[in-house]
Each structure stands twice: as structure tokens, then as C-alpha cells.
Amino acid sequence: MSWATGLMVYIVIWWTVLFAVLPLGVRRVDKPGRGEDHGAPERPELLRKVIITSAVAAVVWLGFFVLHQLDVFSFRRLVE
């Protein structure tokens, strides 16, 4: 696997994990003010979620990399 392929796989995993992590710990605003949405979170804590997403994506990518290196699955077999 080239470094470009590994990077692209990590980005896809990262975005998928981000959408799974975003709803964690969200609390709605009790009394939204003028111009605020009822579903808007009080404190989105995006930096914390980005850090969690990066850590989980790294672990998942590492698992993918190990399985790929052990030739458990191969993209080339799909073409043959």
C-alpha cells in the first residue's frame, strides 16, 4: 500500500468516525434566545471530539493496515 492510499483510507475512516462521535455528550439549549436553534448544543466541544475522532480513526486504520499487510484481504483480488 502506498502512502497516498494509506492517507486516503485514513481520511475516509476519520470522517466516518467523526459522524459517529459528533452526537456524544450533546445537550440542547434550554431556552434558546432570538436567532438560536432549539436543537443547537450548549457546548459543542469540537476540539475534544476531533481529538477523540483522530485517536479512534488511528486505531481503526492501524487494524486495517495490519490486515492489509498480512494479506487478509486485497483490493487487487477484486480486479482479477
Rank of each mutant, 00 (worst) to 15 (best):
60 V>L: 08
30 D>E: 08
9 V>L: 02
30 D>L: 12
57 A>D: 02
48 R>P: 11
31 K>P: 01
52 I>A: 09
36 E>C: 13
15 W>D: 01
18 L>C: 00
7 L>H: 12
2 S>N: 03
78 L>F: 06
43 R>D: 14
62 L>M: 10
31 K>L: 10
41 P>E: 04
70 L>R: 08
20 A>Q: 03
60 V>P: 02
25 G>V: 03
65 F>K: 04
23 P>G: 00
79 V>A: 14
66 V>A: 10
26 V>S: 08
80 E>D: 15
24 L>A: 10
36 E>H: 06
54 S>N: 09
21 V>C: 13
30 D>Q: 09
34 R>V: 10
42 E>H: 13
47 L>I: 06
3 W>A: 07
59 V>I: 14
74 S>A: 05
12 V>Q: 12
14 W>Q: 07
58 A>W: 03
61 W>K: 04
56 V>D: 02
5 T>P: 08
49 K>S: 12
45 E>D: 14
55 A>G: 15
70 L>Y: 08
64 F>N: 10
53 T>N: 09
52 I>E: 03
1 M>I: 11
24 L>E: 07
69 Q>K: 14
27 R>F: 06
52 I>P: 07
2 S>R: 00
3 W>L: 08
2 S>G: 08
65 F>P: 00
1 M>K: 08
7 L>E: 15
14 W>K: 11
27 R>L: 02
39 G>F: 11
28 R>F: 07
11 I>V: 15
80 E>Q: 15
66 V>H: 11
73 F>S: 05
21 V>G: 12
17 V>K: 05
55 A>S: 15
60 V>C: 01
46 L>I: 12
49 K>E: 07
15 W>P: 00
59 V>M: 09
36 E>Q: 14
36 E>W: 09
3 W>I: 13
76 R>G: 14
67 L>D: 02
52 I>N: 05
52 I>F: 07
46 L>F: 09
57 A>N: 02
33 G>F: 01
11 I>H: 11
51 I>C: 05
27 R>V: 09
60 V>N: 04
76 R>K: 15
57 A>L: 03
45 E>F: 01
30 D>G: 01
26 V>G: 03
10 Y>W: 12
29 V>M: 06
56 V>Y: 01
4 A>Y: 14
12 V>I: 15
5 T>A: 14
53 T>I: 04
1 M>Q: 09
65 F>W: 05
44 P>F: 09
13 I>N: 04
74 S>E: 05
1 M>R: 08
80 E>A: 15
79 V>T: 14
77 R>M: 14
64 F>Q: 12
72 V>G: 05
20 A>F: 00
41 P>T: 02
22 L>K: 06
23 P>Y: 01
69 Q>D: 15
9 V>K: 08
7 L>N: 13
67 L>T: 10
11 I>P: 09
23 P>T: 00
66 V>S: 07
74 S>N: 09
2 S>H: 00
51 I>A: 10
41 P>Y: 03
59 V>K: 12
62 L>R: 13
40 A>W: 13
22 L>R: 05
6 G>K: 12
13 I>D: 03
5 T>E: 10
17 V>Q: 05
13 I>M: 04
17 V>I: 08
5 T>M: 06
4 A>V: 12
10 Y>R: 11
51 I>F: 04
38 H>T: 11
76 R>V: 15
79 V>W: 05
77 R>H: 15
57 A>V: 04
16 T>H: 04
68 H>M: 08
16 T>M: 07
42 E>G: 11
56 V>Q: 01
